[in-house]
Design a protein around this nucleic acid. Structure first.
Length: 689
DNA sequence: GCAACTGAACTACCA
DNA sequence: ACTGGTAGTTCAGTTGCG
């Protein structure tokens, strides 16, 4: 169930679930690795077996290379020895291979087992090859504190699934202990367990001198800050993971996969990528892609060089020099369109990767049996299947199967969604400079084929008499007959080899104008009624930083337009704005409905966000870069944080009506402008009428 | 000395 | 620690005017 290397005893620990009990087994794993050059004394002194071998280096095209294979004969993390070697010999003196591969993953690859699967253990593994997941007991655990959610506040009550546990603190914790013993859950789901709940419960237990085990074995859960890191100018905050032993703790608040695709999604990816579920819950889809590519590389007999950390990050300079282009974006025609069809390519980039065999080990091959990438002219091998296509192809097939099954069973739609994230990320990963098998030419080639594919589709559409209203990357908006779409799809599928799908028919669709040039449409902001369902993209309503009040105003406005009568609908929209305006002016809006939620990067100078950060700090709450802050604007532009914004820690009800009024008209304009009513028109109407 | 302008920084969404 | 493309707001420094 959960597998981790126990380095002290140098064994792998595996948790197994039978119908009745949970068992722990231990196994040895010889973590073989490779180095360049002569055998260092260090390794012979340690008693490691060494021999010279020939191996291919991933993800290269090239010949085999002579390296030394080192067999420690036991479970150990080779990286420890690498740093020792670096210390004696000087940094970067030789290449290392297979040293930074996750041990639990390697173990499973080696033994042919996967997490969340049926196996037999008899001092060795037998995989029983069953696609279903075992039945596990799942517990939802939550805690409510007396006062603020912090370590020093006592427990008010616990929620143990639907059961509320209250009373004095000692009683509550004893009841929790008994509950865990009795129910013996395999999975514990929390919301904020990493950042708070788990270390908090252990801390409260400690204060009362009580023994508390939330896992099946004791483990340490000290309260500790998480870490912030930066990627492509974005700061991301991760709380310290609180991993249980023998149980799977999933914190919904720090699990992208769980929030996107539920428990089944996490298990699905865990199984596919051979990552213990407790870890997978906290990993990004990119990590899963990395693991899957490692497995394929190992299967192909490659040795994998150690990807050391990049030394410098010349981001701006690199960006300037970079010729890499992304997907196609059209400039849509502003305003209302009727009789529009939406079509899009199913998993376009992954399908292109497979169809054209785009991979770091196939590009620039020039073996004679290759094809050439449009615009760029790179050669790609047709003869040998590449590492990336080999990784993706089964995922594509599996997702297709799940999508078909998802009509009948929600479980499959969740699994399909998890796989979708894997596929999307797989493309991004090819252009990510820190990724193990990234290669910029691969990324360029995928987008080049992508542009060619959608342009082909647009051309076929125009040949068939459709007007191309809009297009982004892999989607097209076409004005014309619904009846012709099936034939159109067929022609495109035939011409491009990538599956185009009919997303639906719009009753109407509206593209919003750019603020800079009111005659020009914006590619990623539109709304409409697609197959009788309101579809909204990119508007304030869809932004998580928009205060609730304005989301509701915009939603109400859009609801008035659904039936497609824009004369009546527009007037009703204006009424909605007017009502909201009166409320704002009269200070009748609840403070909580005016809260902005924005990410604090730690860089911004004198901004609302940094003012909010200062106010959190004053209240004794330290916000890390990458975390979000919530605030209400008290007085726009003031220098003093206290004057400028308020946060939840203070009883301050006041807000800047002028500022929020402006915001209201910006939100309203987004809906009315494409219908001919600009901000000043709305403002005039609201204030006079 | 202050308003107006401008570019960089920041935050967010779409595919 | 996935990508490029894009919008729109705000910050902070510079320019222009009186």
């Amino acid at each position: 169930m959960d597998i981790y290397p126990d380095l002290r005893r140098e064994k792998m620990t595996i948790w197994l679930r039978t119908s009745k009990h949970c068992h722990k087994v231990k196994d040895d794993f010889n973590s073989v690795f490779y180095i360049e050059g002569a055998v260092p004394d260090l390794f012979s002194n340690l008693g490691f077996d060494t021999r010279r071998v020939l191996r291919k280096v991933a993800p290269g095209i090239g010949q085999e290379k002579e390296v030394i294979e080192i067999s420690p004969g036991r479970t150990l993390d080779p990286r420890k020895y690498m740093s020792a070697l670096d210390f004696f010999e000087g940094y970067g003196k030789r290449e290392f291979y297979n040293v930074d591969l996750p041990l639990d993953h390697r173990y499973m690859v080696d033994r042919g087992i996967t997490p969340m699967s049926f196996v037999e253990w008899d001092d060795g593994w037998k995989n029983l090859d069953d696609e279903s997941f075992p039945a596990l007991r799942v517990l939802n655990l939550d805690v409510k504190t007396i006062g603020r959610r912090e370590m020093r506040s006592p427990i008010d009550h616990l929620t143990f699934d639907d059961e509320k546990i209250s009373g004095d603190e000692e009683g509550i914790l004893e009841e929790l202990h008994r509950g865990l013993k009795r129910y013996d859950p395999d999975v514990i789901i929390t919301n904020g367990g990493d950042s708070f709940i788990i270390p908090y419960l252990y801390y409260r237990g400690e204060l009362l001198d009580m023994e508390l085990d939330i896992g099946r074995e004791p483990s340490l859960h000290l309260p500790k800050d998480g870490s912030s890191h930066e990627s492509y100018g974005r700061v991301i905050y991760r709380p310290k993971p609180q991993m249980l032993k023998g149980r799977i703790h999933i914190d919904a608040a720090s699990s992208f996969m769980y929030s996107q695709s539920g428990l089944e999604g996490v298990f699905e990816i865990s199984k596919l990528a051979k990552i213990p579920p407790q870890k997978m819950a906290r990993y990004s889809p990119g990590r899963a892609v990395d693991y899957m590519e490692i497995e394929v590389a190992l299967e192909k007999g490659y040795i994998i060089p150690w990807k050391k950390n990049m030394v410098e990050d010349f981001k701006s300079l690199k960006k300037l020099l970079k010729a890499d282009r992304g997907g196609i974006t059209y400039v849509p025609k502003v305003g209302v369109h009727e009789g529009v069809e939406k079509v899009d390519f199913a998993s376009m980039y992954p399908s292109l990767i497979v169809r054209y065999n785009i991979s770091p080990d196939t590009i620039g091959c020039n073996c004679g049996d290759d094809r050439y990438v449009p615009e760029l002219g790179y050669s790609i091998c047709k003869a040998r299947k590449g590492l990336i296509p080999q990784t993706i192809e089964p995922v594509l097939e599996r997702r297709k199967r799940y999508k078909e099954l998802s009509q009948r069973d929600d479980v499959y739609s969740r699994k399909a969604k998890a796989l979708k994230w894997l596929l999307v990320t797989c493309f991004g990963y090819t252009g990510y400079k820190k990724a193990r098998f990234s290669k910029i030419e691969v990324h360029e080639s995928i987008t080049a084929y992508g542009r060619e594919t959608i342009l082909d589709a647009a051309e076929i559409a125009m040949d068939m008499g459709y007007e191309v209203i809009h297009g982004i990357v892999d989607s097209l908006w076409l004005k014309g007959e619904t009846e012709g779409i099936p034939i159109f799809l067929e022609r495109v599928n035939h011409a491009t080899g990538i599956e185009l799908e009919h997303e639906g028919t719009y009753r109407w669709v509206v593209f919003t104008p750019s603020k800079g040039d009111r005659t020009v449409g914006v590619p990623t902001r539109y709304f409409g009624v697609l197959d009788d369902v309101l579809e909204v993209k990119g508007l304030h309503l869809k932004r998580h930083d928009t205060p609730r009040f304005f989301k509701e105003v915009q939603k109400k406005m859009l609801d008035r337009l659904i039936d497609g009568d824009f004369d009546v609908g527009l007037k009703e929209c204006l009424e909605v704005v007017k009502e909201a305006h009166v409320k704002l002016r009269g200070r009748e809006v609840c403070r909580d409905d005016l809260v902005f939620t924005k990410k604090f990067s730690g860089r911004s100078g004198l901004s609302d966000v940094s003012a909010a950060y200062l106010r959190y700090k004053d209240a004794g709450v330290n916000i890390h870069p990458g975390q979000k802050v919530k605030y209400v604007v008290k007085r726009e532009g003031r220098k003093e944080a206290k004057e400028r914004v308020s946060t939840e820690h203070y009883q301050e009800e006041t807000y800047d009506t002028k500022f929020y009024e402006k915001y209201l008209f910006a939100v309203a304009e987004e809906v009315t402008a494409p219908l001919g009513w600009w901000r000043e028109d709305v403002e005039r109407w609201v204030k006079q009428g």
